[in-house]
């Protein structure tokens, strides 16, 4: 465990909390892509199947449970509790365009051809593209609430910190995981355009709106 990894995990946790706080306080999930949140719930479910079979540390187990809970509570808020405020007309990204290639790739490129390993690989590939419905929704409506942009910023920061974590682990432990690294780089690239808008607009007190 290194500083990049712990800050990355905390940033991830903060992102998920911010999203829940936004929904809870405003009693609205306007501007949030339910499809992205379903994908994240699917990511955690397929990745953390080893929760009971493979103990790593108390930290690891607790974080997995918290991540799963946050993901499912968020989906519940969007599709049940505050369903009336859900902006379904703008959440139109076609999930099959992500799921079909991701399922195919997880069968083709994995570490071992076992059910849990293929599902783990699926979760890694899916996470790298899970935010696309959300980014698509923002580009469609042309704007995002400031708290939603903070959510996206911390989600992107988590990815960037994980890249630093992998460089660190490669240098100190000679550990590397090609599947995670390649997917992590792809995922981080998706946030670059957003990071630019966040720094040039949101941090200067302006609302994120696209021309």
């Amino acid at each position: 465990m290194n500083v990049f990894r712990i800050l990355g995990d905390l940033s991830h946790l903060l992102a998920m909390f911010l999203l829940l706080v936004k929904i809870w306080r405003s009693k609205s999930c306007a501007g949030i892509s339910g499809k992205s949140q379903i994908l994240f719930a699917l990511v955690f479910t397929t990745r953390y199947l080893d929760l009971f079979s493979n103990f790593i540390s108390i930290y690891n187990t607790v974080m997995k449970v918290v991540f799963l809970l946050c993901a499912y509570v968020t989906v519940y808020m969007i599709y049940w509790k505050f369903r009336k405020t859900f902006d379904i007309e703008n959440d139109t990204f076609r999930l099959e365009f992500l799921l079909v290639p991701v399922i195919g790739l997880s069968f083709l490129v994995n570490y071992s051809y076992t059910p849990t390993e293929v599902l783990w690989t699926f979760s890694i590939y899916l996470e790298s593209v899970a935010i696309l419905p959300q980014l698509f929704m923002i580009s469609k409506t042309g704007e995002a609430e400031t708290i939603t942009t903070h959510y996206l910023f911390f989600l992107g920061l988590y990815r960037a910190l994980y890249l630093a974590n992998w460089i660190w682990r490669y240098q100190t432990e000679n550990f590397y995981d090609q599947i995670s690294v390649v997917s992590g780089v792809v995922q981080t690239i998706f946030y670059c355009d957003f990071f630019y808008l966040y720094v040039t607009k949101v941090l200067k007190g302006k609302k994120l709106s696209l021309p």
């Binding site: 990894r5 995990d9 991830h12 990745r47 080893d50 493979n54 790593i56 690891n60 974080m63 997995k64 991540f67 570490y111 071992s112 076992t114 390993e117 783990w120 994980y162 974590n165 995981d177 995670s180």
Partner: peptide, 10 residues
Amino acid sequence: REFTYVHDEL
């Protein structure tokens, strides 16, 4: 052969 890759990250 059963092979388990260690996934110790979140």
